[in-house]
């Protein structure tokens, strides 16, 4: 058993790129679901259009990096409009179905042979992060303590990533303390009541959808920048549901909930996955093969998600009182 590897990968996971990517996705979902009560099950699509917006602009259209970022952001905003206009006036479950369908459409289009010249088929696009790493102020080397540490490229990505995460948290904090955030929370409780108080509910929902989508879209950027590539199948529905798990784990409608949730989620996910893999590899679990570790790890996420919602819907740090009076 290689406990040291398990330990280091686990510690790395707590602040690693997955936590940044999924933390950002979850901050977006938290705005949608936690604060506004919108069931956006297509967060992965926002991340996908962002990642592809950047990748296609840079690799196919030869545009500068920053334009690529702008294209990605604009794509997410347009997607929010496209999804929101037909569904935000309808009942909650319609938004859920439409967003999950839209995410699937986005994925299928990106992986199609028909659009291969643009999106690169199931192989995706690569080679758009050179400009990002060209800005790296860290000299080459390894940064860390003892067995824990990152190379200069990862350091740079994590530095920018965590700054963006904290900025997003600050924005959420400011907004949710303001009258604007109050309207969102009120919409979550009962949108008719909010309408009866003279607020344009549709406009607020649209703003919420857009804001959450755009924050999630930064997650898409960092995914692409870390991995150096974007592939369509990464942005499947699982990605969205991981983000939901993270939000509920950390406690919905809490500013730092998604960040803490992402840390806990990835620590557990990596720890359980690696431990299982090691146990299987060393023959401690005879009835399982190494390929089966993947599914069982995901199954455990599902199980954990169910248990969390049934037993502690307020999340690990949530306020029981808030859930107890929840009429729904």
């Amino acid at each position: 058993m290689d406990w040291l590897t398990i330990l280091t990968t686990t510690v790395h996971a707590a602040i690693g790129w997955e936590t940044v990517v999924y933390g950002l996705a979850a901050i977006g979902v938290n705005i949608h679901f936690g604060y506004t009560g919108l069931l956006n099950f297509g967060q992965a699509a926002f991340m996908a259009v962002a990642g592809y917006g950047l990748a296609v602009s840079v690799t196919v259209m030869n545009l500068p990096f920053w334009i690529g970022i702008l294209v990605g952001l604009a794509a997410a905003a347009v997607l929010a409009l496209l999804l929101g206009i037909p569904t935000l006036q309808l009942r909650a479950d319609y938004l859920a179905i439409v967003t999950i369908a839209a995410a699937e459409i986005v994925r299928l289009v990106f992986r199609s042979v028909y659009f291969k010249d643009i999106f690169g088929g199931s192989d995706g696009r690569r080679g758009f992060n050179t400009d990002f790493y060209a800005m790296n102020p860290y000299p080459p080397g390894r940064y860390g303590i003892g067995p824990f540490g990152f190379g200069e490229r990862t350091m740079w990505l994590l530095t920018v990533g965590w700054i963006v995460v904290l900025l997003c948290c600050l924005v959420v904090y400011l907004l949710m303390k303001s009258p604007w955030g109050r309207v969102l929370k009120a919409i979550r409780e009962d949108e008719d009541a909010v309408r009866a108080l003279g607020k344009n509910v549709f406009a607020y929902k649209m703003q919420s959808l857009m804001l959450g989508g755009i924050i999630g879209c930064f997650g898409g950027f960092f995914y692409g920048l870390y991995n150096g590539s974007v592939q369509p199948d990464v942005f499947g529905t699982e990605m969205t549901f991981f983000a939901y798990t993270i939000v509920i784990l950390g406690g919905a409608a809490r500013v730092f909930g998604p960040v803490v949730g992402a840390m806990i989620f990835w620590v557990l996910f990596v720890f359980i996955g690696n431990t299982l893999a090691e146990l299987v590899a060393n023959g401690y679990i005879p009835f399982m093969s190494t390929i089966q570790v993947g599914p069982i790890r995901y199954a455990l996420v599902g199980l954990g998600f169910i248990l969390l919602l049934v037993v502690r819907p307020q999340g690990i740090f949530g306020d029981k009182r808030e859930i107890a009076i929840d009429a729904r």
Binding site: F41, E238, F241, Y244, T245, P295, I296, R297, Y298, A299, V301, G302, L303, G304, F305, I306, L309
Partner: peptide, 9 residues
Amino acid sequence: IGVAILLRN
């Protein structure tokens, strides 16, 4: 959704 993820895997 959790049930779906659990069963599928």
